[in-house]
Amino acid sequence: MAFEKLVFEKIDHETVVDTVVRQIEDLIVTGVLKEGTKLPPERELAETMDVSRQKIREALKRLEDQNLLRVRHGEGSYIAALTGTALSPAMIDLYARHQSAFYDYLEYRREQEGFAAALASERATKVDRDIILDTLEKLELAQKNRDSKASKEQDIKFHSVIVDASHNSTLIHTMASIYELTKRGIFYNRDYLHTIDGSGEKLLQQHKDIGMAIVEGRAEDAQIAARTHIDFVEKSFRAGHEGSKREALAKKRQALIGS
């Protein structure tokens, strides 16, 4: 058999629609297009990709049939829900009632975020590093202005952009679901950490340690810093929980003494 027949395979000619679909699918898989992202109008997509609006329309219809897009009439096309929720509503309520489950959640985050930070140190592009530094600046500004809402938003964004910088599609999508729960304040209240930390300077410094280690390409330091941060969160909540129990017992003793 001839050499070329052993080494090379026939190439199927993709249609224009197939090419458009594959490009959008690639952007979804890699986490560039995230759940809820609105796509540009058909006309803009057609101009950007240099294809007809009819082909764009066909591609979007195929993606919608695959449940990757949701079309809102009169509004546009949006990336559909990709990962669902990490836990069912019933399980979330169960977590709220069982303290040990909360620490399991932190344990999971500790390992995944340490892994993500190490990967980001090795894989982050200049754009990724710029985004991390910009997010750190906004987090520090929110801290300086004592803006708890902006501080919470930038905190979650900081962890998210690190995961994005890992360039691991599985991490990107699974952690997006976890961060969505954190964003909704289901697992813990970030403001509570500030009452333990005082000014919040410890938390800010921990984020800086993680970010700078990644930007400077220090994978081991980044992993350690990420894990140390979650360890601090766990230790703080354990201390707070124990303190609340002691306070409740003290009040009961006080009530008995006063009776």
Rank of each mutant, 00 (worst) to 15 (best):
Gly31Lys: 09
Val32His: 09
Val32Arg: 10
Val32Trp: 05
Leu33Gln: 09
Leu33Tyr: 14
Lys34Ala: 11
Lys34Asp: 03
Lys34Gly: 05
Lys34Glu: 11
Lys34Met: 14
Glu35Lys: 13
Glu35Cys: 11
Glu35Ser: 15
Glu35Phe: 08
Gly36Cys: 10
Thr37Phe: 15
Thr37Val: 14
Thr37Gln: 10
Thr37Ala: 15
Lys38Ser: 08
Lys38Phe: 04
Leu39Glu: 06
Leu39Lys: 07
Pro40Ile: 08
Pro40Cys: 04
Pro41Tyr: 09
Pro41Phe: 10
Pro41Asn: 12
Glu42Asn: 14
Glu42Cys: 05
Glu42Met: 12
Arg43Tyr: 07
Arg43Pro: 00
Arg43Met: 05
Arg43Glu: 12
Arg43Ala: 11
Glu44Pro: 01
Glu44Asn: 09
Glu44Arg: 12
Glu44Asp: 14
Ala46Gly: 09
Ala46Met: 09
Ala46Lys: 06
Glu47His: 14
Glu47Thr: 15
Thr48Phe: 13
Met49Asp: 02
Met49Val: 05
Asp50Ser: 13
Val51Ile: 13
Val51Pro: 05
Val51Asn: 04
Val51Glu: 04
Val51Lys: 08
Ser52Met: 10
Ser52Thr: 15
Ser52Val: 11
Arg53Cys: 08
Arg53His: 05
Arg53Phe: 05
Arg53Ile: 14
Gln54Val: 14
Gln54Ile: 13
Gln54Met: 10
Lys55Gln: 13
Lys55Ile: 00
Ile56Asn: 03
Ile56Gly: 05
Ile56Met: 12
Arg57His: 12
Arg57Thr: 14
Glu58Gln: 15
Glu58Asp: 14
Glu58Tyr: 08
Ala59Gln: 02
Ala59Trp: 01
Leu60Val: 06
Lys61Ile: 05
Lys61Ser: 10
Lys61Thr: 11
Arg62Asn: 02
Arg62His: 03
Arg62Ile: 06
Leu63Pro: 00
Leu63Ile: 04
Leu63Tyr: 01
Glu64Ala: 13
Glu64His: 11
Asp65Tyr: 08
Asp65Gln: 15
Gln66Glu: 12
Gln66Trp: 01
Asn67Trp: 07
Asn67Leu: 09
Asn67Tyr: 12
Asn67Arg: 13
Leu68Val: 03
Leu68Asp: 05
Leu68Thr: 03
Leu69Tyr: 01
Leu69Gly: 01
Leu69Thr: 01
Leu69Ala: 02
Leu69Asp: 02
Val71Tyr: 08
Val71Pro: 00
Val71Arg: 10
Val71Glu: 03
Val71Lys: 09
Arg72Thr: 12
Arg72His: 12
Arg72Phe: 13
His73Trp: 06
Gly74Ile: 10
Gly74Glu: 06
Gly74Tyr: 09
Glu75Lys: 14
Gly76Asn: 02
Gly76Val: 07
Gly76Tyr: 03
Gly76Arg: 02
Ser77Asn: 11
Ser77Asp: 04
Ser77Gly: 02
Ser77Leu: 02
Ser77Met: 04
Tyr78Trp: 07
Tyr78Val: 08
Tyr78Arg: 06
Ile79Arg: 00
Ile79Thr: 01
Ile79Cys: 02
Ile79Leu: 03
Ala80Thr: 01
Ala80Ser: 14
Ala81Met: 06
Ala81Asp: 13
Leu82Cys: 01
Leu82His: 03
Thr83Tyr: 13
Thr83Pro: 03
Thr83Ser: 15
Gly84His: 08
Gly84Met: 09
Gly84Ile: 03
Thr85Ala: 08
Thr85Val: 02
Ser88Trp: 04
Pro89Lys: 06
Pro89Met: 08
Pro89Val: 04
Pro89Phe: 06
Pro89Gly: 08
Pro89His: 07
Pro89Arg: 07
Pro89Glu: 07
